[in-house]
């Protein structure tokens, strides 16, 4: 992409806070497949950083690296100015990075409150017994804040709706995510109303002083809440811009392919013009183009 704005400049009206999480030329290779190359990303406190990209652009690999699922093979990652390399999701979590995965990382047959506290159980007493009462109370409070009331927290997660499950996963991550929260396509499977709830919650997390990484392929949703936008394409950063430098139209165009899309559009328009001549030839041509 030649039109990409590489390297964002500090906005003139207010000084930038130092980045909470800093990725510097990070890359990841599986054998000779480079899933991610030279990704530079700054996540700041109290900001929503949107990472956009089509399927296969490297979003999942990027999340994996930040959340400790994968190791990175090139570059450097810094959390609070300290170089870091997470050996497992548990390490990343205890360093303050919470992740809401696309598959939500909920165990279907387990109850709501057990899922909520899975891996972070509250224990009490000499025998380190689970403090079930307290966990249920906290779980209920956090879910209510999210706009969901589940009357029976002992209900298995499998019996809840997709939106409710998303809410549980996000509320859980926010409850435990001290510094950085990663949301992997949180609105992808939701209806309009529930997407609104999730987007509001993203802003609440931002206002609470978290660094939010919002992964999505929906530029409308990203533009509603984002402060900083990064578009990934084929494992590389294709655009890195602050909100002030962008319009929704520009973001949408970039996301959809930028110049390539313009070329395609011109081409398709040209073909529509030819249509009166021969229908069959055009059909065959566009099929070829797709392949």
């Amino acid at each position: 992409m030649t039109t990409a704005i590489i390297g964002s400049k500090p906005a003139t009206d207010h000084p930038e806070p130092p980045p909470l999480l800093q990725l510097d030329n990070v890359g990841k290779s599986y054998g000779n497949v480079h899933a991610l190359r030279g990704v530079t990303l700054n996540v700041r406190q109290g900001e929503v950083t949107c990472v956009l990209g089509d399927n296969g652009a490297g979003k999942s690999t990027l999340i994996g690296i930040i959340s400790g699922l994968h190791d990175y093979t090139e570059g450097a990652m810094q959390l609070d100015g300290q170089p870091c390399r997470f050996a497992s999701p548990r390490v990343a979590q205890s360093s303050g990075i919470a992740t809401v995965y696309q598959n939500l990382a909920l165990v279907p047959l387990m109850s709501v409150w057990r899922n909520f506290f899975l891996g972070n159980e509250i224990r009490k007493g000499l025998l380190r017994t689970l403090d079930i009462k307290r966990m249920k109370r906290i779980c209920d409070e956090e879910l209510r804040r999210m706009g969901i009331v589940i009357p029976d927290l002992d209900r298995p997660v499998a019996s809840l709706s997709g939106g409710q499950r998303q809410c549980i996963a996000i509320a859980r991550a926010i409850h435990f995510g001290a510094k950085v929260i990663i949301l992997d396509e949180p609105t992808a499977a939701l209806g309009v109303k529930q997407s609104g709830v999730v987007l509001r919650y993203i802003l609440r997390a931002r206002d609470a002083g978290l660094g939010v990484i919002f992964i999505t392929h929906n530029p409308q949703h990203a533009y509603l809440v984002g402060d900083h936008f990064v578009i990934l394409k084929l494992g590389q950063v294709a655009l890195d811009a602050r909100r002030a430098e962008l319009t929704l139209a520009r973001l949408t165009t970039e996301m959809a392919g930028g110049q390539e899309l313009e070329e395609l559009s011109a081409e398709l328009r040209g073909e529509t013009g030819q249509r009166d001549g021969s229908d069959t030839r055009t059909g065959a041509r566009s099929e070829q183009e797709e392949g």
Binding site: P89, Q93, T99, Y101, L106, V107
Partner: peptide, 11 residues
């Protein structure tokens, strides 16, 4: 119940 989910939350 779900080993991947468990791993992802740090179990």
């Amino acid at each position: 119940g779900d080993a991947d989910a468990a791993r992802a939350v740090g179990v």
